[in-house]
Nucleic acid binder design. Structure first.
Lengths: 249, 249
DNA sequence: GAGTGGTCTAGACCACCCT
DNA sequence: GGGTGGTCTAGACCACTCA
């Protein structure tokens, strides 16, 4: 059954677990319109048989899709294609690159670097990245674009002591996540805080909103070994990006 | 081992799964200071033996604590008490009452009702709650307090057709979640969107911030059967509430 | 290499929905 | 009552960390 995985994962090549592969495949089938909105998917037992995996694996995959708002699992009744359906955007709780998210929404992502410099860590950097004040960090200022429009301004500070030698030179093109990947330092977790901000100091150029309103995502990214890797403050221009969270009991 | 569960669950009495009970117990032990910040917890196998449950159950509990930012699970190394430690606030992705969250942070929650009325659903209500325009809804305006200070203004619209007869009269005291619980309608999921808002129209009384800045949590709550139950717009006064999200890959 | 977490399986029993 | 999801178990094997 099921020849090749139709739904390619959004990110890069890397070994997928069976559950991730299944989720990706089912995601592709749902988005491909194989089932109508509100329609019932095959039962977990059926899927387990079809895909030759255990029911636990099926459940893991389905719960992931539920977390993305794609399907709706109802006890005793079945799993249904969510009413939000195809129009859903990736949830905020899933750690991934903004670029990938924009692409998944069907837009053309872009990036404009304003500056990339090496400098000593400020007091603030040091506190967030857990390094001594003054130790070298890579400071990046960039604007995130979607279909040519600025959706966010981001101020990122990256620890240099955990990067392989020469890796710093590679920054400046492509997604930051892809860079980390390339260097073998995939962020595993992020601790994020949200704030509403109004300021004329944020950002640069024509992309700045007249009202100066932003949703600030202030986050620290960690390696699988729980080392702080990057501290970023990303100011999303209010109204140009949909922040969605699926909250579950 | 482990006599009674020390860590009482934040919410109300209801049957807990073993994993939930375990999570609650471990949470109590961590918060109680049984292990230092950064210290390693017993291994999953040890915990499984100690608590007489399977390792899968232990993992479920630990992952829940990880999602709350309480512990830090490191492949091959062990599970450690998070550096954020005790000061952590509940994550935004966990669906729960604001009241309960405030209490967990060690503050005294409060509520001030401004108005509770029954009225026909507006166009906007109808769209979010999936009812015909004009069908009766319960409209609530309230302020959420923490230690006597206003932290949020909330405008809630509740479907009346799914409430048991007479239940509407019970609103106006206590947490809305407790009310739902009492009536047997525990929300299971919420679909939330976030916005930065600046407005002088929002809120009332002295609690309004001078700058008019709010973080708007715009959400629809669903019953386990996926019926829309409540549409609420909660305006959190910027700076008075910490919005935290643990994002994972 | 020993120990720890990450993933997966096959099977079981329960709670819930629907007819 | 029959089917579906919710939870749990015991055991297995793999990947990673650390000494």
């Amino acid at each position: 059954m099921r020849g090749e995985g139709s739904g390619a994962p959004g990110g890069l090549a890397q070994p997928l677990t069976r559950a991730q592969w299944l989720a990706s495949d089912l995601r592709g089938r749902v988005l491909g319109g194989e089932w109508q909105r509100g329609a019932r998917l095959p039962s977990e037992t059926e899927l387990a048989t079809l895909y030759q995996v255990s029911r636990v694996t099926v459940r893991t995959a389905l719960k992931s899709l539920e977390g993305q708002g794609l399907v709706d699992i109802r006890h005793g009744a079945g799993t249904f294609v969510s009413d939000f359906g195809v129009s859903i955007r990736a949830g905020l709780q899933e750690l991934g690159s903004i670029t990938a998210t924009i692409r998944e929404l069907g837009h053309e992502p872009g990036m404009e670097w304003r500056s990339i410099t090496t400098r000593p860590a400020t007091d603030d950097d040091a506190r967030h990245l857990d390094v001594p004040e003054g130790s070298p960090v890579l400071s990046i200022e960039r604007a995130v674009l979607s279909d040519g429009d600025v959706v966010a301004f981001s101020y990122d500070v990256i620890r240099l002591d955990v990067l392989p030698a020469g890796a710093a030179d590679e920054f400046g093109r492509g997604s930051i996540f892809e860079l980390f990947e390339h260097v073998g330092l995939r962020p595993k977790r992020a601790f994020a805080r949200l704030h509403a901000v109004q300021s004329a100091e944020v950002g640069w150029g024509d992309g700045r909103p007249a009202n100066g309103l932003y949703l600030l995502l202030d986050q620290v990214h960690f390696t699988p070994g729980s080392q702080p890797l990057m501290y970023s403050r990303t100011y999303f221009v209010e109204g140009r990006f949909e922040f969605v969270i699926i909250r579950t009991a």
